[in-house]
């Protein structure tokens, strides 16, 4: 399954390295992380990673393959 996680603020390249398994695109005032997610455990792990990096998750959605 593929997911898209939208976080508040423009992430630096360095911080994006904390999500090596995902691609990212920076837009006005937001960053979208996207890519394949293995399973539910991975999904919750990504959320926890956002939390521990102090990122505010604005939106998270599953995207069609």
């Amino acid at each position: 399954m593929r997911y898209e996680i939208r976080v508040d603020g423009q992430m630096s390249e360095t911080l994006a390295k904390a999500f090596p398994e995902l691609d990212h695109v920076v837009m006005s005032g937001q960053t979208v992380l996207f890519g394949p997610v293995v399973d539910e455990a991975h999904l919750y792990g990504l959320l926890a990673r956002c939390r521990s990096l102090g990122l505010r998750v604005l939106e998270m959605r599953r995207v069609p393959e």
Binding site: G9, Q10, M11, S12, T14, G54
Partner: peptide, 11 residues
């Protein structure tokens, strides 16, 4: 600015 706060400030 529009950066993510902790990320930007920590750097």
């Amino acid at each position: 600015g529009q950066s993510t706060i902790a990320d930007f400030l920590l750097a």
